[in-house]
């Protein structure tokens, strides 16, 4: 019998808030390969079980764009030049966000089996959902790029600025997914509520109409103007639209502030996630 390897594997003492966050982050780094495997499997699973398979990655955003195009330009007869590009610049990134939140509601809950059998840092689950959601954005770039065939004169070098804007969106997707994945364990009803909540949020953001429309309402009702200002998607949509549609520089100031503000939000979400994660196995 060996007498060595007496290292404590279960029952490490609990740490303070900074220690907890630090421990969670190191566990992600240690399990980066697991995060990657889970990401790949999540992306792959989306493509299976349907006739058109991976074609849906392109078709889905394209169809959604078409629906809003009908709504805005045919039914509401809103006159906006290059309307498809105008809409696409906001709708396609939004699709990424909604897909991320939808997968967040199941990312922890759906792994009930393995959580009951193996001890592992649960944070890898929402982390991989965040990463897998990026696929939505990458594939949406294809229909988005195709729109420039219709409006070639709209294409400027500023189109490359979508990348920093997307980074800002990504930075806010992280805490949103982590927090939601934990909440969804305790309140299953939240997955019913999320689509409606997201729809309201969508209509209160400058997606189907220019920012000026919201600003006009804000001038009449200052509280509404305040909400427009603190809504991250006001700035994110405007950023995409500046880059893709107007062919000008996005407003770096507010985007930079948003990016910085995502850091405390992410750390807080990680801390809260870690604090409630011991309950997951008991509740699921």
């Amino acid at each position: 019998m060996t007498t060595h390897s007496t290292e404590l594997t279960v029952g490490r003492p609990r740490r303070g808030s900074i220690g907890t966050i630090f421990e969670s982050l190191t566990s992600l780094v240690e399990r980066r390969r697991l995060v990657w495997y889970l990401t790949i499997s999540e992306i792959r699973n989306k493509g299976t079980n349907s006739l058109l398979g991976n074609v849906w990655w392109f078709l889905d955003p394209a169809l959604q764009l078409f629906v809003y195009f009908l709504l805005v330009s045919v039914i509401f007869q809103q006159a906006q030049p290059a309307i498809l590009l105008f809409l696409g610049a906001a709708i396609l990134p939004w699709k990424w966000f909604t897909a991320a939140l939808a997968s967040a509601t199941t990312s922890v809950r759906g792994r009930e089996q393995v959580m009951r059998q193996i001890a592992f840092p649960h944070l890898v689950l929402p982390a991989s959902s965040v990463l897998a959601s990026v696929a939505n954005f990458i594939f949406a770039l294809v229909p988005l790029g195709a729109l420039y065939l219709l409006y070639p004169d709209r294409l400027t070098p500023w189109a490359l600025a979508v990348l920093p804007v997307a980074v800002v969106q990504f930075l806010w997707t992280i805490p949103a997914v982590i927090a939601l994945s934990a909440v969804a364990v305790f309140f299953r009803d939240i997955s019913n509520f999320i689509p409606h909540g997201l729809r309201i949020w969508f209509y209160l953001s400058p997606a189907l109409f220019p920012i000026e429309t919201l600003r006009a309402i804000g001038d009449r009702h200052p509280w509404f103007g305040f909400f427009v200002d603190i809504n991250p998607f006001t700035w994110i949509f405007s950023g995409y639209r500046d880059a893709l549609y107007y062919g000008r520089a996005p407003e770096w100031g507010p985007l930079g502030i948003l990016a910085l503000a995502s850091i405390p939000a992410t750390l807080l979400s990680i801390y809260l996630f870690r604090r409630v994660s011991p309950l997951f196995v008991k509740v699921l």
Partner: peptide, 30 residues
């Protein structure tokens, strides 16, 4: 196995653990 944390008291397990609970947990069907 470290899957559940105790509500009170202390757990200490030393060394590499193998758990044979339910088999096939964590498999991805695809």
């Amino acid at each position: 196995a470290g899957i559940l944390e105790p509500s009170v008291g202390k757990v200490e397990v030393r060394g590499k653990i193998a758990t044979l609970l339910q088999l096939g947990a964590g498999f991805d069907p695809e």
